[in-house]
Amino acid sequence: MKILVPVKRVVDYNVKVRVKADESGVELANVKMSMNPFDEISVEEALKIKEAGKAEEVVLVSIGPKQAGETIRTGLAMGADRGILINTDENVEPLAVAKLLKAVVEAEEPGLVILGKQAIDDDSNQTGQMLAALLDWPQGTFASNVEVADDGVAVTREVDGGLQTVKLALPAIITTDLRLNEPRYATLPNIMKAKKKPVDEKTVADYGVDISPRLKVLKTTEPAGRQAGVKVASVSELVDKLKNEAGVL
């Protein structure tokens, strides 16, 4: 079995982004970029499945600017086998990403596609579910445990009330949640090795997918700010304020 892992290049999770003064978007110049944290978890899970002898190859795919190639290299340094970069400078919405991924799936025929549950830039949480729909494959979203067997894959999902386990026929889509695993660090020798691993460069046109946006972004604004309040010196002062000033006790 082959496993396909879509990885997105996003603003690093430690960066507090700033909205541009003209409300046209967020400031991305000179901002640290990294692999979407959930996608690191996906890469790790795919590698684990391969190491357990249940998959032969882990293929990464990223849709984005040239620099998304670095994101692919990061995953190759973790241990993935090869990459596909679909190069575009356009902002590609989840529906269009799902359509491009569908085309990649049709060419690569993986048994599993493991995506992150959400990209921490757009916070959409939809690409995996959309890809599952377009392929008519089952979906195991928000996974905190994955067990691959011959007759399918059992996925334990983090749901609002606790945990739910579903069994999916293969091929299937999985989206990862935070507690699925802890992604490994790339070692220096593996970073060197990754430089020689193949990365196919493609364009959107190669897949014949229309990526024109469906959502028009009218503006991007700062959220309503919150002022820091006061420090209290003791529990009794706190209780007094909560009762008599804030009126919440």
Binding site: E93, P94, A132, A133, T141
Partner: peptide, 20 residues
């Protein structure tokens, strides 16, 4: 988690970009 799981699957079938 239920809505987030189901709605994008519907959206893609309808060829609609979900507003999350």
């Amino acid at each position: 988690t239920t809505g987030k799981n189901i709605m994008p699957r519907l959206a893609a079938k309808l060829d609609v970009m979900q507003v999350s």
